[in-house]
Design a protein around this nucleic acid. Sequence first.
DNA 1: AGATAACATAGCCATATAGCTATGTATCGT
DNA 2: ACGATACATAGCTATATGGCTATGTTATCT
Lengths: 108, 108
Amino acid sequence: MLSRDLAAVFGALADPTRLAVVERLAQGPASVSDLAMPFDMAGPSFLKHLKVLEDAGLVRSAKKGRVRTVTLDPAALAWVEDWVARHRRQWQGRLDALGTFLEQEANR
Amino acid sequence: MLSRDLAAVFGALADPTRLAVVERLAQGPASVSDLAMPFDMAGPSFLKHLKVLEDAGLVRSAKKGRVRTVTLDPAALAWVEDWVARHRRQWQGRLDALGTFLEQEANR
DNA sequence: AGATAACATAGCCATATAGCTATGTATCGT
DNA sequence: ACGATACATAGCTATATGGCTATGTTATCT
């Protein structure tokens, strides 16, 4: 279904570097070099990670002068949270129904 | 930090096949062949996907006779939901703070 | 104007991933 | 006992991913 794009979002989060970048961005926007600083990684390698995050819709960016500022886009995170919450609830519902069933069985 | 394992969970969900399997399992446990049926894929290929899900802790399984039954493990999903919710909230807090700031500026 | 800074692009390389076929093993049905 | 069923394992292949260096482009600084 829509699982194709959702899979891309999960894929973007499936890497320690990108996960750390998202965590950092949750505290506010930052430039590319600020974001790259904590990582012992060549520039181009890091830029690829940013591209993955942006392609997945987790991040937006705009360039002013020679510095590009990156911002978290909450839409993708909201989507992930919603999907996970829905399936957790559904599973929880199953468990509750099973509990009721076992209870009924016990009272016969 | 703990990001390493969380990345593995995201990685397990970063594939349409595995995502669909999780969706199916949210409705209740199923055997390997039941799970595999919707997919036009060779048996061993599908088994690899199940192994990825199980290694990531998203799924548990037990074999009885010749059939292995697979069950969703809610712990990993809970973890994902918690992480996403935390960072969304943090980001939302930033936005709210910015709103307050702009409002104060407007009133001077 | 020239040097430096901040990305951006191109292209290479090693490993990981996702698929396959062929074959093996342990149950189950008759 | 024997064939069929339900996984499991081994090993191959093609493409994707994540890293690098080298080089280019566009602002900013002095």
